[in-house]
Design a protein around this nucleic acid. Structure first.
Lengths: 351, 351
DNA sequence: CTGTTAGCGCTTTCAT
DNA sequence: ATGAAAGCGCTAACAG
């Protein structure tokens, strides 16, 4: 429960002052080799460990980093957290994790509560960030980094990904496979990434000389169920491919196709966005635009560490690239006999 | 970064002693309604909040609970954590999460480090718990609760589930559907639950008058990939059903069947164990033995809170029941023409 | 009802 | 190379 042994006890045991013990234990100079040896020995023998509260009170740092996420159970979030944890482990900072569960008020409350000395800095994953919260963070100079902000112009150091380029590359892959009736599952507009991904989709189509068909674009929430339902409805429009704004939707789309008796990718190609662990763990594997979630966590944590060290950041917008991961869920359009050369790479990945 | 306003400042502002401010702010008696009002007003105006480090140093409690889990990214773990977090939120305790990633040494290190005053108590999810660690926890009187221990006789307060009964009920469900060639994916023997689930399987068979066929029992690790591979190999034995020791394995089994051109559940029934969120998010939905993961977290946290309050627990072994969740992945055995009526109810329940 | 004293365990500053 | 004093912010315990 406690490291009940104090510095004073170690000092008494050895017959030196507490100050000397402190110096030795913290590797500060000013102690003979002999004293050093004896002190370390005694400390070890007694099982001394510093009282973090006392230390914290003295030096004003808690050794804790707060992480506030939308949803603790979402895989998306977890891969990010894992990256953060990895980076933090090296510097002996502990992670204090909170979830807001999409509740702006709760988020604000958690941010306020943690910022008051409970933690040294904050990492926010896709936060709502109401103006009042932003003001609070600024006014109190809370070291804070946002990973995957909802708005790209969030006035805080942030880690973002190439949502536009990612989706555009994904849809271009579908176009290269000969698809022309490409539907799009658009995510919640509260996230600017939804808009950006949609623009990637629509630009890819337009630049290839196609028109965006409104009937093929549906708004969908970030879940398997929503993906399943929305796709089921969409199938009546006879798309040959569905590009989804998130893997969970895409997974729902695959099963919707399956439920409708279609074969993926023969009858319908499906593209995701995220590359969650599940994307590789399905049959067929999901072709998807990979967000470097783990890296996002790593980089966000690293940026926070710089802030905590008092260093200024090289840039306030750390932008990471996405990459297209081709698996089995996309293949040549059924009626496309065009791209033979492309079909090798695609159909190979496709199965 | 900090609630830099101290009690002394509030006291000075109002013109009373720090003690009075402390009393008012903590709702202790001994302050006139008037003083109370003025103090609260000033504290609010100045934006005072207690310095947690100082408080912690004074009263010896950090307000933090440590949670050490095997794997931060496993859904299994997360559902538990969500339960823990929910219970803790009510009492203003924060959760400090660590992962050991299956490394016994790291686990020990994390436990030791957190126990030294960093946290008030510990929740361990499926820990390795080497003897030395157990000794440490006992010697230091660390309030500690284990959720889903690897060995059922772990000498600490613990939350366990009915592994044996659960699997037995699941396999009996398969038997009732007319299956006789029921294969079993057995989990890692490091977890006693693997053994218990296997016994549930074998007892169900034996009591129904069947023999356990060694060729139909395979050891498999707790992953989709392992489930896929092991099942692929298993299919050559022509089972009509596969009972898996975990959902991830079962999901792998379904896709292995699919990859082999079999239809689930027409040609092969698949049973899981856990009821992860994914189990309901697949097509067909996975019939599985539900572990009340969220509840396990809730109950574990509640037990820890009792320990922190100095209360003794009613029991050291909080055992929770599993329940069979019938979805679409199980159906009547192909060669069973007996149960026509069952096929309706089963496929109905299954859908 | 309100104030004073003291101390939680540590470390910064200044002496020796 | 070592030690004494003081104080981080808070709150029991006791005084008034």
């Amino acid at each position: 429960m406690v490291g009940r042994v104090t510095i004073a006890q170690v000092a008494a045991e050895v017959g030196v002052s507490a100050m000397t013990v402190s110096n030795v234990l913290n590797g500060r100079p000013g102690a003979s080799a002999e004293t050093r040896r004896i002190v370390l020995d005694a400390a070890g023998r007694l099982g001394y460990t510093a009282n973090p509260a006392a230390r914290s009170l003295k030096n004003g740092r808690s050794g804790l980093v707060g992480l506030i996420t939308l949803d603790l159970t979402a895989q998306y979030t977890l891969e990010i957290i894992r990256g953060v944890a990895e980076e933090l482990a090296d510097v002996e900072l502990e992670l204090l994790i909170n979830a807001s569960y999409h509740d702006a008020e709760r988020e604000q409350d958690r941010i306020r509560s943690l910022s008051r000395g409970q933690v040294d800095g904050l990492i926010l994953v896709a936060p709502v960030l109401e103006p009042a919260t932003l003001d609070f963070l600024r006014d109190n100079r809370v070291p804070c980094v946002v990973i995957d902000p909802r708005r790209i112009d969030t006035p805080l150091p942030r880690v973002t990904v190439d949502n536009y380029e990612g989706m555009r590359a994904g849809v271009e892959h579908l176009i290269a496979l000969g698809h022309t009736r490409i539907a799009f599952l658009r995510g919640d507009d509260e996230l600017q990434s939804s808009e950006l991904r949609f623009r990637g989709y629509s630009d890819a189509l337009t630049l290839a000389g196609f028109q965006v068909d409104e009937r093929l674009v549906r708004t969908c929430s970030f879940s398997y169920d929503s993906g399943f339902r929305t796709s089921t409805a969409l199938l009546s429009e006879n798309p040959t491919a569905i590009a989804a704004g998130a893997d969970l939707m895409a997974l729902g789309a695959i099963d919707a196709a399956r439920a409708a008796g279609l074969d993926v990718p023969r009858d319908l190609s499906v593209l995701g966005f995220d590359d969650l662990p599940q994307a590789g763990q399905s049959f067929p594997g999901l072709t998807t635009v990979r967000q470097p979630l783990h890296d996002m966590g790593l980089r966000g944590a690293r940026a926070l560490l710089s802030l905590l060290d008092g260093q200024s950041l090289v840039t306030d917008d750390i932008r990471l690239a996405t990459s297209l991961v081709i698996r089995g869920s996309t293949g040549p359009a059924a009626d496309a006999d065009a791209s033979t050369n492309l079909s090798t790479s695609a159909s190979h990945a496709a199965g």
